[in-house]
């Protein structure tokens, strides 16, 4: 009975590491706020602002999931379920949008 408790993530995280992740998350929040003020859509390409904001959000999420939610030390199944849920979200987005983006093309353009 005693042996499996050592397998836990006791040793993986300590308070400085938690605080480090926290600092990254705060930095990400500030970064996303600041970059949202720049007109990347105009200077780079349309959608650049959203893309950057989502990239930062994904990074933040990855840190929360890996370290706060201990996915990093979790069994494969947990990894799989985390990845699969985003894969299914992607299916929903992609297959819905493939309708909207191709709908009525050629009809409404001026």
């Amino acid at each position: 009975m005693a042996e499996h408790h050592e397998e836990h993530q006791h040793e993986h995280m300590n308070i400085p590491k938690y605080v480090g992740i926290f600092v990254i998350l705060v930095a990400g929040t500030i970064l996303t706020y600041v970059t949202a003020q720049w007109d990347l859509d105009g200077t780079l390409f349309a959608g650049a602002n959203t893309l950057l904001a989502l990239l930062i959000a994904f990074t933040k999420m990855t840190f929360v999931m890996l370290f706060f939610m201990h996915v990093y030390w979790s069994p494969k199944l947990i990894w799989l379920s985390a990845v699969a849920s985003f894969f299914w979200l992607a299916i929903m987005f992609a297959y819905t949008m493939q309708d909207y983006l191709t709908r009525g093309s050629g009809v409404f353009t001026t």
Binding site: D39, L40, T50, A53, A57
Partner: peptide, 21 residues
């Protein structure tokens, strides 16, 4: 928390640059 991490940029920050511009 993660849900909010996405809601914040998607709801509050989209088109912020129009204000700044």
């Amino acid at each position: 928390d993660i849900v909010w991490i996405f809601l914040f940029p998607l709801l509050y920050l989209l088109g912020r640059h129009f204000l700044a511009g």
